[in-house]
Every structure is written in structure tokens, then in C-alpha cells.
Design a protein around this nucleic acid. Structure first.
Lengths: 226, 226
DNA sequence: AAATACTTTTATGTATGCATTAATGCGTGC
DNA sequence: GCACGCATTAATGCATACATAAAAGTATTT
């Protein structure tokens, strides 16, 4: 997955932000990696100023830490971090999904969710785990956008980004995510029926199970940091 | 209330951030106010560089908008914004409070909440609405800190700040908040008993009622922007 | 008077300069 | 050989310089 959100390519700050974020999320820049502002500036072929501003944004998003005198450090995501992130998502997403269900969305509104779910199913067949993860991500982001609380969408988006790397690593250390895919299908059905409480319950279970499985894997790996 | 969080007084960026944020939250700088970087820099007695970095942070927190060529604009908080903010808080705080209750916190742990509640009650007696609002704010922030999910605390803190101005204005357009204060007392009791479901329900009702009342006032005022 | 073209002003985005100060390396003393 | 202190290096925080481009003002024409 590339860095989402509005295209940030017009300015040098936007360039630096987009490129650094893409390298972090794709694990091309590993957690723990440190570099000083001049180093990064040279790597990106620009002066320190736009790099600095991009780093401030990445720090606000919880992807890097700016340690005085040592430069920017790519933040690892620990099991405890993942626990915190999933706790928040478990509080937010089921609510947003249930609210959406109350509005009785028609097929046209739900079309992007339908497509994301189909893409997940198709990706499982091939199988193509990267495509699966991208479609899964798309489902969750689209659902929040349909709900329409922009602040909520932005908050969840930041959390998705923070969790992304650990998710991608653990994704390959477990069975194919048939169950998770089926749950999306179920949630979609409940949304279509306007069954708000069903949606809430299904979504909560979906997130809680995903969190449990992920933390299990992280523990089995000896609590590494991503 | 002053700008909360870590004291940002050491550097010029920190100074600019703290001072601007304090002026925004206290409504000394009104929503809609615009100023260019050189103007702000002169007002604060420093160069554009630290001002710029402070403005980037304030933009990330949703307090100002940086519009190219026109400078920084203090963001108004509309009724729709307040609705979105309260929706998120209603999803997050009852959960955090219920989780805290499950841990069966003893009197020592709950002491800061007890104190905040007493302060609210005392402020109602005087009466001192500013002191009441400060104690209310302290209760909500402390509860989240006790819960211990730092990301959740940070997210809620940003939302509190965004809602602060509208809250302070509407606070003076309604009856004394006896009900709200009593609800804090009830929540505290349920926390002490470890009654997680009770805490969740009380807190959700507390937030939902507060949101309804606030939006009513905003509507009666003709949907102004703060 | 209105519209258009041109000039001037100025805010921003970025680069660079500079003082401070932390970290590193080296040498000296024990 | 180890610890301590000094010198050197270099990263940061901030100030300033500069190019660009948008906006505002002015003049000119119809």
C-alpha cells in the first residue's frame, strides 16, 4: 500500500512526506532506523527545511520520533501499541458501522464495500496476500467515509497507518484469512438489511478476534517490535 | 484553561505553540481571524521559522487552517463539528471508563477523580463557572489517563481542545450544570463498585445528554460558529 | 466609467547562514 | 588499563536571504 490521503506531490514538503511515509509503511525503512536531517535532506535531494516540516507531520502521525541531536527515528510498533490501537478501533468502527446501518444505505451506496469484499475473496483464491490486505484496508476506510464523520475517518486512518507494518508481517505467519473475509461478507449483509445491532456485534467480534490473533502471533514471536 | 500537555516553554517553537494555542482556546483570538506568518512572527517577537512550525502543529490539531497566500486562519467550530466531536467521545470515553471499572480501582487510584468531582460541586456553590469547567475537563482527562491507553488519551485531548471554545460560550447560556455534576458523582460511585456496565451506560448517557443540550443551544443561537 | 494590461507589493516555499550545544574522539593523568 | 577532561565535530534551532507567484493597485484605453 502506498501512502494514502490527498496527493502530496506538489511541494517539496509534500514530496518528502509522501516518500518517507511510503518507505516507512512498506518497511523499506525499518523501525529503529535513525537518520539526521542533513542525511535525509541529501537522500531526498532537497534542503533541510522541507524535510524538517515533513518530519514534524510524520511525528504527529506517530510514525517517527524526533530525538534531539540524534535525528529522526522510525518508531517500532510493539504488541502493547497494537493492543492500544485495536482497542480504539474496536470502540470506533462498530459504532460507525451501526450508525451507517441505521441510515438504510442502498446498494449503490454500499457498492464500494461490495467491491472491496469481492476483491478480498478474489485475492484469497489466487492467493495474493498483498491484494487481500489492500482490499481489507479499503473496506475499512470506505466504511468510515460512508459514515461521514471526517474527524473519525482521519483518526482511524492514522491508526490504520500505524498498525500497517505489523499487520503485513503477521499476515504471512498465519493461515489464509478466510474467516476474516467471511466476516466482511456478513457485515455487508447486515448493513444491507439495516440491522444496526447486528452490524455492531459483528464488527466488534471481527475486530476483537483480529486483535487476539495478531497479539497471539506477536507473543509467539517473542514480542518483537515492528 | 491554559494549553494542557507538556510544558512547551523551552524553545521558540514551543513558546509560539503554547501562546497561540492559549489565545485561541481562550477566545482572545477569535475564529475567523487571519494573520500572515510575518505578522504573527512580529507579534511574538521571533522569526517566521518557529512560527511556521508551531502553525503546522496547530493545524494538525485542527485549531487553525493554513490557507496558501492568506496566512493562518483560526478555525471556527460549527454545530456539525461539535456533533462529530461528541460522537467520537461518546464512542471512546464510556468504553475507557468501563474498562477502568473492570480493574476495580481502589480509593487511592480514584482520588484525583474524587477531587475533580468535589471541585465541580464546590464551583457550583460559589458559583464559578470557569472553575467548574476546569474541574470537569480535569475529570475527563484524568479518567482517560487512568485507563492508560496513551493514544486514546491524546486523541480525546485534541477533541477536548477543539470543543473547548464552544463549550465555554454555551456554558453561560444555560442553567447551572447541576445535573452534569451529579452524573460525575454517579459515575464515580459505579467506578468504585467496579460496575463496568453501569459505568458504560452512565457515561454514555452523560455524553449524549451533554451533546443534545449543547446542540440545542447552538441551534437556538442560529447555528453560529465559534 | 468600465475593462484591461501592467506594475508593484508581499506571502510563501525553500535554501542557506550562524550560534549553540551535545556527542565524539583524543590525550593525559592516575 | 581505565577514567577523566579537553578539543573537535556536527546536528539542531532559529534567523535571514531569495525566487516565485499571487494579489493589489495603477494606469491606459475604449
Amino acid at each position: 500500500m502506498q501512502a494514502r490521503g490527498m496527493e502530496q506531490g506538489a511541494s517539496r514538503v509534500g514530496d518528502a512526506y509522501t516518500r518517507l511515509k511510503a518507505e516507512i509503511l512498506s518497511n523499506r525503512l525499518l523501525p529503529g532506523f535513525q537518520a539526521t536531517e542533513p542525511e535525509i535532506a541529501e537522500r531526498l535531494g532537497m534542503s533541510r527545511t522541507p524535510v524538517r516540516e515533513a518530519l514534524i507531520r510524520l511525528q504527529a502521525e506517530g510514525l517517527v520520533e524526533l530525538v534531539p541531536r540524534r535525528g529522526a527515528r522510525i518508531l517500532p510498533v510493539s504488541a502493547a501499541d497494537m493492543n492500544d490501537i485495536y482497542e480504539i478501533l474496536t470502540a470506533l468502527e462498530p459504532h460507525a458501522a451501526a450508525e451507517l446501518a441505521l441510515r438504510r444505505p442502498d446498494a449503490q451506496v454500499l457498492a464500494p464495500l461490495e467491491e472491496a469484499t469481492s476483491d478480498m475473496e478474489a485475492a484469497l483464491e489466487k492467493p495474493d496476500l498483498d491484494a487481500w490486505a489492500a482490499a481489507d484496508d479499503r473496506f475499512h476506510r470506505t466504511l468510515l467515509e460512508l459514515h461521514g464523520n471526517d474527524r473519525l475517518t482521519a483518526i482511524a486512518s492514522t491508526l490504520f497507518d500505524q498498525a500497517h507494518r505489523a499487520r503485513m508481517v503477521t499476515l504471512r505467519m498465519r493461515d489464509m484469512p478466510h474467516r476474516s473475509t467471511a466476516e466482511h461478507r456478513e457485515i455487508l449483509g447486515a448493513l444491507r438489511r439495516g440491522d444496526a445491532e447486528g452490524v455492531r456485534r459483528l464488527f466488534r467480534d471481527h475486530r476483537e478476534r483480529a486483535a487476539r490473533e495478531l497479539l497471539h502471533i506477536l507473543e509467539r514471536m517473542g514480542l518483537p517490535q515492528f
